[in-house]
């Protein structure tokens, strides 16, 4: 499933955030969205998720205008992992994952194959009976991703999934997402703050800042000029000895 953003305009309280932007998220790829705070990364995700109102002909999913897609039908196409989910009910991990089966017939069924498979795919069997408000940051993020996956969509949208995580868990989550793109053939769109995580994991990136936006393969888009333009930082590129990919050192 691919997503096309076509001449998208969006304003918040009369402040234009997007002015006729065009983007395309091709299927089965890992897409990163980067930019300084307040540039509209989350807003972009929310317009694609139809959580914010957009004009007709602004966003297409597989050539279908999202305004013509019913909510329940959209929920079978795109799932969402919010940033810093603080609103956590006191329920078990399994019950929490089950909430994403809302539209399916197996909601609340004790033996749910979909949920079993996702729990073993993410290796979170040990957490199954714990309560979600008792989990550590890294565990919780995995469980939230498991919940989104149990919606069985071909597109997964995440808003800063590595925020507030220690380096080990950041790498763990990014590896997990990267494997999902390959093994489950899904499209992932995620906002990120860490340019190096984008360099290591994303196939394509979008850079946003104020009135400028650029999209393309990670290696091409993340370069010295763009880092200066979009983040106002100087940069020096070296090879990451572990992945043989680019690694960037930043300086003001």
């Amino acid at each position: 499933m691919n997503i096309k953003v076509n001449e998208l305009n969006y304003s918040y309280v009369n402040n234009p955030i997007f002015d006729s932007i065009n983007l395309e998220f091709s299927k089965n790829k890992f897409h990163g969205i980067l930019g300084p705070n307040g540039c509209g990364k989350t807003t972009l995700l929310k317009t694609i998720l139809k959580l914010l109102k957009v004009n007709q002909d602004s966003i297409y999913i597989n050539n279908e205008d999202i305004l013509d897609i019913e909510r329940y039908s959209l929920a079978k196409k795109i799932s969402y992992v919010e940033q810093n989910s603080t609103q956590l009910p006191h329920i078990s991990v399994r019950d929490y994952i089950n909430l994403s089966r809302y539209l399916y017939n197996d909601y609340n069924k004790e033996t749910n194959e979909t949920i079993n498979n996702i729990i073993s795919l993410l290796k979170i069997e040990k957490l199954e009976l714990k309560f979600i408000d008792e989990l550590s940051g890294g565990e919780l993020q995995k469980v939230i991703i498991a919940r989104a996956l149990s919606q069985e969509t071909k597109i997964l949208i995440l808003d800063e999934p590595t925020a507030n995580l220690d380096p080990l868990h950041q790498v763990e989550i990014m590896n997990l997402l990267s494997n999902l793109v390959e093994e489950k053939q899904i499209t992932i769109i995620t906002t990120l703050h860490d340019i190096n995580l984008a360099l290591s994991y994303c196939d394509n990136v979008v850079l946003i800042n104020k009135d400028q936006i650029i999209q393309g393969p990670t290696k091409e888009v993340i370069n010295k000029t763009n880092i200066k333009n979009y983040f106002n930082l100087n940069s020096h590129f070296i090879k990451n000895p572990f992945t043989d990919k680019d690694y960037v050192i930043l300086n003001q």
């Binding site: 998720l49 909510r71 929920a75 969402y80 009910p89 329920i91 909430l99 994403s100 809302y102 539209l103």
Partner: peptide, 20 residues
């Protein structure tokens, strides 16, 4: 009961799961 369960989540997440 199903709708109320989903309403335990944040509004955005509940909407993305398919609840109006």
């Amino acid at each position: 009961t199903k709708e109320l369960d989903v309403l335990l989540l944040s509004d955005d997440t509940a909407t993305s799961i398919g609840l109006d």
